[in-house]
Design a protein around this nucleic acid. Structure first.
Lengths: 197, 197
DNA sequence: GGTTCATATGAACAAGCGTTCAGGTTTAGA
DNA sequence: TCTAAACCTGAACGCTTGTTCATATGAACC
């Protein structure tokens, strides 16, 4: 037995379970494997987490908070709609690249019995942010007229799809490429550099 | 025991397993539950399928063939790049609406140990089709200049994201809305109706 | 030394899993 | 009515799972 501080062990378990969960998905991951990856015994996991579900929820909640906070800053600074949308896309994509594991964990168990409502709420919250940006852009004359709700839904869908591509296929899509593409569709005039990299 | 023809029973098992697999994912689905849903006994499943994995593979392969065939027709008819892309998007979205279960089945176990290479190949094949359409559009002067590969990847990512939204959140995105949005980004002039529904 | 307490262990348990197979039931033709 | 083939059954097997708990260990105090 290699004795550590409680906090250290807890972090170890969280890191190990992120690794195992995102490689195998929730159901196919066993506490035994997580314990092995964290180099502790099975029983120790249950000292720090009530059960498998609580461990999983803990993981999801921790990481989501990070992203939500970053997105929140977009509205603290006064920017053009165009810049705000660029930032929004950049933050989401950078986050996806940095936390591929977490994205995989989400995808693999989306639709799973627990946590799904929270995930949906987060998604809708993001759509609302985009909707606000689009409304602002239309009002200021930057963006062409459209139904902000529909357009926001499509843009968030697009971001989700690209994030999926990044996480699953390990392809790197630069935020700028995606921004350019989306801005081409939104801007009144073609004030955007060509998509050529 | 309600005796049926062998073929009928096999179809029953396939339908039931599609239901269970797409609701629960591969690992969390049990043969017992599939058998129950098909109203047969456990043993009968093993008469028609060697094991759980073969049953899953069978499901995937059957449905994918359908979609691939439909997409193939796009190039048999001579159309403008614009019309071809519209059709491409429409077919994918209609397919997603009609086969939500199948999409869920894919997503839930994407990254799973088996079948993943086939899925990736299909995705890349779709990207190539879009790339061809875009090249054609640029050559004919319909589309603005861009890097066809990058743009195709973004468009396919977009479609994937919207399909995800349709399947997971039960939201209906009309193909026309998505086509309009994407065409806005591609067309040289703004020859597209506003995104207003 | 002894005591205390947070930390860690892993055998044990019940439940569920995929899979098998000896045996049952139904259908169809003679 | 009998027979053969086709079809179906579910108890049983070996294995893995999440979870528990009596026990052991290490460090920090007196």
């Amino acid at each position: 037995m290699n004795k550590r501080s409680g906090l250290e062990t807890k972090k170890c378990i969280l890191a190990a379970s992120m690794d195992v969960f995102s490689r195998k998905g929730y159901t196919a991951s066993s506490i035994r494997e997580i314990a092995k990856a964290a180099k502790i015994s099975i029983g120790t996991v249950y000292i720090y987490f009530k059960n498998k579900e609580e461990l999983y929820q803990n993981l999801i909640e921790n990481k989501k908070q990070e992203l939500t906070e970053k997105i929140g800053y977009i509205f603290l600074e006064k920017k053009s709609a165009r810049e705000a949308l660029k930032d929004f896309i950049r933050i989401h994509l950078e986050y996806a690249v940095k936390h591929k594991e977490f994205i995989l964990l989400h995808i693999r168990e989306h639709g799973f019995s627990f946590g799904i409502e929270k995930k949906r709420a987060f998604f809708n919250q993001q759509i609302e942010i985009i909707e606000k940006i689009i409304k602002k852009g239309i009002d200021s004359g930057e963006f062409r007229k459209s139904d902000p709700g529909n357009t926001a839904r499509i843009i968030m869908g697009t971001i989700r799809g690209i994030i999926l591509t990044i996480a699953l296929d390990n392809v790197n899509v630069r935020p700028k490429e995606l921004s350019n593409f989306i801005l081409c569709a939104l801007l009144k005039d073609k004030q955007v550099k060509n998509n050529i990299p």
